[in-house]
């Protein structure tokens, strides 16, 4: 068993179709999400907007991910627009596989700068996107013939999968210290906060205390089991289907749209090849390779 460990990393990368589909869907989502932010670009990404500046200091690489907070942006909203259009162009290039290495770096650079500038207005979903885009820069799914690239592909593919499990693990871990979650009342309280609620979410959890508790514990149990169940082939599809319903509830019921959708997109990486092929046919994506 232990002897097999290095082979997971040096064997031919088998997940190119999956990673390719994941990138396409993620890039498309980010593209549409940024377009939806157009009316608020000056306010959220501009130096003089309601987000203001979080402050800037030269601090190694980190400074290059926080450029929109630099005082040079004062009264120059076109710099924020440059980053927005830069991100859109990079996403387009990534989608069409034009200079994939360069576009991967550009997507990361523009996206992270925008997200760190408007950090207050974003959720854990965007934090995950920042991290995943960093990992994705190292995966060149069509270049597995190079030994080094092949090891990188495998390594960062596993890192992404583990990263998502880490998210679910800690999401449960921290909730277990809160009596509102352990008592099963958390969703009842959340539904009473207009910012995180809607009429149907409110009426759903206020039907009965039993139902409210059932919903709260379902969230806890799902998140706690995710890092284990997602590896069990026989039950992962119904399990992930429940997850999709849960995250759609977060997107539309609680109104945390991007977080819910981003989490659903990450589920692509946990699917088997047969599911990926079915999904690809459904969306009529062209095949990249004949194997994988």
């Amino acid at each position: 068993m232990t002897k097999n460990i290095p082979y997971y990393f040096i064997s031919a990368f088998k997940h190119e179709k999956k990673v390719w589909l994941f990138k396409k869907v993620l890039y498309a989502f980010l593209f549409l999400n940024t377009i939806s932010m157009f009316p608020m670009v000056n306010d959220v990404f501009g130096y003089n907007g309601i987000a203001g500046s979080s402050g800037f200091r030269w601090y190694g690489v980190e400074s290059f991910l926080n450029l929109l907070s630099h005082p040079v942006n004062y009264n120059r909203p076109y710099i924020a627009w440059f980053f927005v259009y830069g991100q859109l162009v990079a996403l387009g290039m990534g989608w069409f596989k034009i200079w994939p290495k360069l576009s991967g770096i550009a997507i990361y650079f523009f996206t992270v700068n925008l997200l760190s500038k408007g950090g207050l207005f974003f959720t854990g979903g965007e934090v995950l996107v920042s991290i995943l885009l960093f990992y994705l820069m190292f995966i060149q799914e069509n270049k597995s013939n190079s030994v080094f690239q092949n090891i990188l592909n495998n390594t960062f593919y596993y890192i992404i999968l583990i990263q998502i499990c880490v998210l679910y693990y800690f999401s449960t871990y921290f909730k277990l210290f809160d009596s509102n979650w352990t008592s099963g009342m958390a969703l009842t309280y959340v539904s009473e906060i207009a910012f995180y609620s809607s009429d149907w979410f409110y009426s759903l959890v206020h039907q009965s205390e039993f139902f409210a508790k059932l919903a709260t514990y379902s969230v806890l149990i799902y998140q706690a089991l995710f890092p284990i169940v997602v590896w069990i082939k026989q039950i992962k599809i119904p399990f992930l289907t429940f997850g999709i319903i849960l995250h759609l509830g977060i997107s539309f019921g609680m109104g945390i749209f991007s977080f819910g959708i981003i989490m659903i997109i990450t589920y692509i990486l946990f699917l088997d090849l047969s599911h990926i092929e079915r999904l690809s046919r459904l969306f009529k994506f062209k095949k990249v390779t004949n194997h994988g």
């Binding site: 854990g124 991290i131 880490v166 910012f195």
Partner: peptide, 20 residues
């Protein structure tokens, strides 16, 4: 972890109980 892997994942923990 700075700056590429900063994360916490304490989303909705503690559960928000204030309407701000």
């Amino acid at each position: 972890v700075r700056p590429f892997f900063i994360q916490r994942w304490s989303m909705f923990a503690p559960c928000p109980v204030f309407e701000n």
